[in-house]
């Protein structure tokens, strides 16, 4: 039992160190070195006593460690204060916006990985042949087009009279499946288009390495059919890197992707809330979003580690 526990305990310790690091950086950038909040909270004609009181409330006269501790406590208890811009509690803001972002991003994320795995497998299987070269060329082209360009182009193509004019130009008035599909289609296609190049390239390289391994060559020599080899051996043995990639890209795609997609299409998810917090310098929202996503990422990393250990006993 001790042999099992020891590497796990070490991983847990490393994860905790990372949590300290990410929260420390968010704290330093946004709270400690961040702009003075005093005048955001009170008007220009405040008395000296009022200023002193607000500064005291904000904890500006407290020592570093105490203020960092308070930030940690805010994150742990989810007691995140209120938005400077709207006066809404940050916790309600998160509860209102995060579900929208999830239903917005999940279809594109799942499809993006599915298409990437399928194309990568096809490409690796026919390595060097025409279809492989075509897929590779398409991937490089896809990787060379900016996300913003894709968003603008897809909006014009699908949602304006200059194109097909099938979907709403922007917004998010979702009340059921039909309206959901109506609003989610263009963002999903855009996300799919932007990620397929990176995904296909990654999965192709992964599968090519796997196909070259001895046990695959042995299976082939023993007369296993190509589809059995691809599905049973190649795909199954690549599960650990596939899962690692998918898990690791969740926060990046969901947060960074939603930031751009939602601010572009005016969708009231966490991305748009973050965008508004960036433009208005809304510190309580920013520090909550940055701190929580970074901590969530470390947690996901740790869970992935556990999952991969289950799948592949060699990892110990």
């Amino acid at each position: 039992m001790r042999e099992v526990m020891r590497p796990l305990a070490r991983k847990l310790f490393q994860a905790l160190l990372l949590v300290v690091g990410v929260t420390l950086i968010s704290f330093l950038l946004m709270v400690w070195f961040g702009p003075d909040q005093t005048y955001t909270l009170i008007g220009k004609n405040a008395t000296t006593e009022q200023i002193a009181e607000v500064r005291h409330q904000l904890g500006y006269d407290d020592p570093f460690l105490l203020r960092y501790g308070e930030y940690l406590l805010e994150l742990v208890t989810l007691d995140l204060g209120v938005s400077n811009a709207s006066g809404e509690s940050v916790r309600t803001l998160l509860a209102r916006t995060v579900p929208i972002s999830l239903v917005l991003m999940i279809p594109g994320f799942v499809l993006g990985n599915g298409v990437g795995i399928a194309l990568g497998l096809a490409s690796a299987h026919r390595r060097g042949r025409r279809s492989d070269r075509l897929i590779t060329a398409l991937s490089v082209t896809g990787m060379s087009i900016s996300f913003l360009v894709v968003l603008i182009a897809f909006q014009v193509l699908f949602s304006t009279p200059y194109g097909l004019d099938l979907f709403p130009v922007r917004g998010w008035r979702v009340s059921g499946w039909t309206s959901y599909l109506h609003y989610v289609t263009v963002p999903t296609l855009a996300l799919l288009f932007v990620t397929f190049g990176y995904n296909t390239r990654f999965y192709r390289a992964l599968f090519i390495e796997e196909i070259g391994r001895d046990h695959i060559r042995a299976a082939r020599a023993l007369g296993a059919s190509e589809s059995v080899i691809l599905w049973k051996h190649v795909l199954k043995n690549s599960m650990v890197p596939i899962i690692t990639r998918i898990m690791f890209s969740i926060p990046l795609v969901v947060i960074s992707g939603s930031l751009l997609i939602e601010s572009y299409f005016g969708i009231p998810g966490i991305g748009q809330a973050t965008f508004e917090a960036i433009t208005s310098g809304d510190q309580p929202v920013l520090k909550a979003v940055v701190g929580l996503t970074a901590v969530a990422f470390v947690a996901i990393q740790f869970l992935t580690e556990l999952l991969c250990r289950r799948l592949d006993p060699r990892l110990g």
Partner: peptide, 20 residues
């Protein structure tokens, strides 16, 4: 340090730096 920097979603990191 690498682990820490890789854990913060990039655009949020830029936003935090731009804010600071």
């Amino acid at each position: 340090l690498k682990g820490v920097l890789d854990a913060i979603p990039f655009y949020l990191f830029v936003a935090a730096i731009a804010y600071a």
